[in-house]
């Protein structure tokens, strides 16, 4: 039982509904038209390109090609974190990339090997989309966590200095903000893990059901991915902060980001 193929032209039918949106925006002076059109246009182009690319990768389905693509995803996610958090590429890109690359790679290979039990754990069909889901979640978690840690330190500089004077140890002195960062990173994912299925069916499950899987199969996958996301996000933020902080302080424990 496969999914019903969509011809290339029918998605454009949706534009019928975009047209009244544009008219309403125009009449009421709601300045969204440019952004809506740009967003839809960009989304389409982006996805089509990725689709072409992935199609080839799936045809090759080779360990090295697949892994290269996964590394590319990790690099892109790392770059996005560095930029969003205002870190420097020179000092912090590598720590970030390693920081959340490793937990996610370990997690995906573990799932493929032991949970799903694939013959080829680098099979593009599992390796790439599942890794995409893990990385996407780690990415948002990392951004929240790293921001919380370094902004917390910057905003409470005096308190941080006083703690340094009390303990004389950078790790102990920064611990309150470190804990805050882990909590801030994990809060959203814990909330969404709690409510999954009640409010909306998650994307992966929807996709699988549309693709013809039985709901129970889709549910088991969803349970696995939710658990994996939670775990890799947790270790990802620890690793990322631990690795970035090596170059974030000077010899006198001043924050130099």
């Amino acid at each position: 039982m496969g999914v019903q193929e969509i011809p290339f032209y029918t998605p454009f039918y949706l534009l019928i509904f975009v047209l009244p949106m544009i008219i309403i925006n125009f009449k009421l002076g709601i300045g969204l038209n440019k952004r809506i059109i740009y967003a839809l246009f960009r989304m389409t182009i982006q996805l089509v390109l990725v689709g072409f690319f992935l199609q080839y990768i799936f045809i090759f389905n080779n360990l090295w090609v697949n892994s290269a693509y996964v590394l590319f995803m990790i690099g892109a996610a790392g770059l996005s974190t560095v930029k969003t958090c205002g870190l420097t590429i020179k000092n912090q890109l590598l720590p970030i990339v390693i920081g959340f690359g490793i937990p996610n790679l370990v997690m995906i290979l573990f799932i493929n090997q032991f949970v799903i039990g694939l013959d080829n754990i680098f099979d593009a069909q599992y390796y790439i989309p599942l890794m995409g889901m893990l990385l996407g979640n780690s990415l948002s978690g990392n951004i929240i966590g790293i921001n919380t840690f370094y902004t917390g330190l910057k905003q409470n500089e005096r308190q941080y200095h006083y703690r340094l004077a009390l303990s004389a140890n950078q790790w102990e002195s920064t611990l309150p903000w470190y804990k805050e960062a882990i909590i801030a990173c994990m809060n959203p994912i814990i909330a969404s893990t709690e409510t999954v299925g009640l409010v909306s069916l998650p994307g992966m499950m929807t996709g699988q059901i549309l693709g013809g899987s039985m709901p129970m199969t889709a549910i088991v996958y969803q349970i696995v991915i939710m658990g994996a996301i939670l775990i890799s996000r947790y270790f990802g933020i620890h690793f990322s902060i631990l690795l970035t902080r090596k170059k974030a302080f000077d010899d006198y424990d001043w924050l130099i980001l």
Partner: peptide
Amino acid sequence: LTGETVNRIRSKICYVSQDADLPK
């Protein structure tokens, strides 16, 4: 006092200031 000795030196000093930012 250098970057390497700063922690050792800090541990010999008790610093109390007017606007002491005690931990929360």
